[in-house]
Every structure is written in C-alpha cells, then in structure tokens.
Design a protein around this nucleic acid. Structure first.
Lengths: 231, 231
DNA sequence: TTAAAACATGACCGTTCAGTCACTCTTTTA
DNA sequence: TAAAAGAGTGACTGAACGGTCATGTTTTAA
C-alpha cells in the first residue's frame, strides 16, 4: 500500500549518486518523471514503436543527451514507465492470493475477490493512461521496445490463472473448463471492456462497465453458496 | 461462399491492364501474392510498424520499385493483406444476421449461431496467421500503416453487437447487460482465447478452446428453451 | 508489326533516426 | 575548497529508410 508513484531511472550513477534527499536524487526523479510523462501521450497517440527519441525529448523539454543519461533507449524507458503499474497490480494480485489461501469459507473467498476488484479499480483510476497504453500494446511481438509490455501481459495472465486455480480447486466454478482457459477468458473479456471504455471518451457510465465486470466474474462462480453473506 | 483467395493489388493500371486471364493480370496477382505472403511472417515476428519496405521486398524477391508499382505504401499493403479475411468474416456475420432475422423459433436461433461458429472456425483454419496478426495489432492507434487493422477491429465489434442485439431483443440472454457490453465481453474473451492459443505452438488441443468458446456463448443464452432441439 | 503502356530493376536522393561526444556547468565528497 | 563525478546541451555521424527515376524489357492493343 506504499504511495510510491515515482518512475525509476534505468541508469543510476555508481560513484556519486548523491544522498536520497539531495539535489541529484531529486533532480534525477524529476527528469525521469518528465521524460516518462512526455512519452506516454505520444505512445498512446502513435504507438510505441513509431515514436522517436527526438520527439520524446522535445516534448519533455530535455536534451537528447540527457535522455541517454537516464535510459539505455526506448525499451528501458518503457520498462520504467510501466514499473509502478506492474508493482501495484502484482501486489494486489498477490494479496488476493494470500487471502484466498487463508479463506476458511466461501464467503471469505467472495470477499477476497471483491477486495481485489476494489483495489484494481483504484489502480485504474490512478493511472488510466498507462492502463490504456498497456491494453493497446500488450499483444506486441517480443522484440524491440515493447518487450516489457509483453512481459507484463504474461504476468497478468499467470496471476489470473493462479487466482482462478483457487476457485477451481474449491469447486467454485460453474464451468467445467480448466483454470487456465477460464482465466484467459475472464482476462480477455475484462481487457476488452476496459479498452473499449478507455478508447471512447464519450462512452461514459463507468458503473455500467464495472457492473458488467463484477457480474461476469460472480456469475461464473456461483456454484455452492448463494453470494449472500459477504462483508 | 466464393473461393477468392487472391490479394488485390492497391494500384491497377488504367489503360492496358490486360485481359482477365492474360499474362499481365496473372503476373499482377502473383506478385501481389508474393509481396503479401512475404510481409506477413515479418509483421508477425516484429510488428507491422517496425518492418521496412526494403525487408519485405527482399523477402519477396522483388525490387523495391515493383513494390511501389502495386502499392502506395505499407498501409495499402496491409489493407490488401487483410481484405480476403475481412470479406470472409463480414459475409459470414451477415449471413448469420440474415438467418437470425428469419428465425421463427429459438431452435433456429441456436442453429444460426452454430452455423456461424462453424464458418468462423473454417476462416480461422484457412488463414490462422492473418488472424494472429489481426489479434496482435487490432488495438493499434488509428495512425500509420495499421489503420486498416483497426478499422477491421471496429467492424468486428459492430457486427458482434448486431448479432447480439437479435438475441437481446428476443430476450434470449441470461445477462441483464446491454447488447453492446455483452458483445464486447464475448469478443474480448474470444479474441484472447484465440490469441493465446495461436501464440503458443505447444498449447495444442484445439477442441478444448473451441469447446470453451461454444460453451461460453451458449451458456450466456440459455434463457428460455433448453437447447435440446437444434438441427 | 508497331507504338504505347506496363513492368522490373536497383542505383540514387533527401530525410530522419539512434546514438555519441566535446564542452560547459553543477553537485558531491573528502 | 578543490578535485572528481554527474549533469545538460545540441551539433555531429553513420546508417537506414521511404520514395523516385532512368534504363531496359515485356506485354498489350490496334
């Protein structure tokens, strides 16, 4: 639950990085942030691969040499850009998995899923543009600057499978599908709903989308108890 | 149900295109095909935007000037590459919509969906690499060479919504969601299942995936009749 | 048969890009 | 405070790219 919103630079000097609160460290954080936040809208509008380093540095009001001081290249920038989102997402998933493993009743299982939904919604609200960028690029080939995004996508799938396996082992799923296929189905539906929602500024009504998501997941796991008793 | 598998060139001469079975026409079809089929594996491996015209022409054993004789540029190549797939997909969807509108019983509605599933499976088996490429690039920004892919994606969504609306108006859906959100959910799940399946050569068992897809759709529309009586 | 159109080729051109570097200024650390 | 490391800059370089074109060949259509 840490409030770390800063982007880590890809390169950090070895000999004199400066004290943690000093001018160098603060400046490094600020420049990294400026570059990352200048790059993101360009990536969203034109795609990661087509945006050049020159464009990014111009948009960030930073010289080209400074970019290469903090990053090896575009791939490392992409990795730094997504690092906070990846951390928050994976930690939320891991917390949910912990709660699921500790759950004694079906109600606690439902509660764990609901808590996860709330935490993921928070992540979405905090960084909708990064989420949009992820959805836009997450099926890219594993070559070039988008490698970190594709890696993140695999982690999303794996984490979803892990969570689904808990429900699967507890016979909570209505479907007779494997946990893997169930997870891939749910992730695909969720990601497409999110993408279409984020892609149209006019299609408001976020509650309708969240309702669709929660309904879909809960609909698939009403095997034993009716979901009446959850906190 | 025509067997047109040929890729149309983007540019066709006005004054002397040659007779339909003549040398020029045949040569034009052949060169267009060579370029398209050389480009596809490159697009799959490295992404549409990063592949250069030089690479494509080298892979196709064609001079650069010849490429620009048949295509304005990469975007037109992409359009020609996907045109057969788009045609087959949309025609199958339209046939299904016609059958749905003519359906007198719920059993006929189910039958229409089943026929569609079979036809789409055939499309997938005929051109799995183009489908994979579509899934890989279908969320690209509407700029550059991938514009036709994004357009196709919107058509897929719209066609799915149209089909879902029929089931929605007939009160065949178990869900209380709008037809739009239902369609986006189903398309997202389907596309992700297909992509993960096509992306891993080892994950065999196509019947498991198809079973997941059919089960998911039919599971969502068992409102009135039990789906016993369908041809 | 013949003139015009289409075709094929790859050298060529202007532009753009990633990455480097010399130079200057700032910060750290001892 | 002084020396060394870090930081900022933008010009520069070499490679690569999209697109064109001059040249020569093949096909069409009359």
């Amino acid at each position: 639950m840490s409030n770390e919103k800063s982007y880590a630079p890809g390169r950090v000097p070895k000999q004199r990085p400066g004290k943690v609160g000093g001018k160098r460290a603060a400046n490094r954080v600020e420049r990294t942030r400026a570059i990352c936040e200048a790059a993101r809208p360009l990536f969203l509008q034109r795609g990661v691969e087509t945006v050049t380093v020159d464009e990014i540095t111009q948009a960030a009001n930073v010289a080209k040499g400074s970019f290469y001081r903090y990053f090896d290249g575009k791939q490392q920038l992409v990795r730094s850009l997504f690092e906070p989102l990846v951390e928050e997402f994976l930690s939320a998933m891991q917390r949910c998995e912990g709660r699921l493993n500790a759950a004694a009743s079906t109600a606690e299982v439902f509660s764990a899923y609901e808590t996860l939904a709330g935490e993921l919604a928070l992540v979405l609200l905090q960084s909708p543009e990064s989420v949009k960028l992820y959805l836009q690029e997450c099926r890219a080939p594993s070559e070039g600057a988008r490698v970190p995004i594709r890696e993140f996508s695999e982690q999303v799938t794996q984490a979803a499978i892990s969570l689904t396996e808990v429900a699967h082992q507890r016979k909570l799923l209505r479907t007779n599908l494997s946990a893997r296929l169930t997870a891939i189905t749910v992730v695909g539906a969720t990601e497409n709903l999110l993408f279409r929602f984020l892609d149209r500024n006019d299609l408001g009504e976020p509650h309708e989308v969240t309702g669709a998501l929660v309904g879909m997941v809960l609909d698939g796991i009403r095997a034993e108890d009716p979901p009446a008793a959850h906190s």
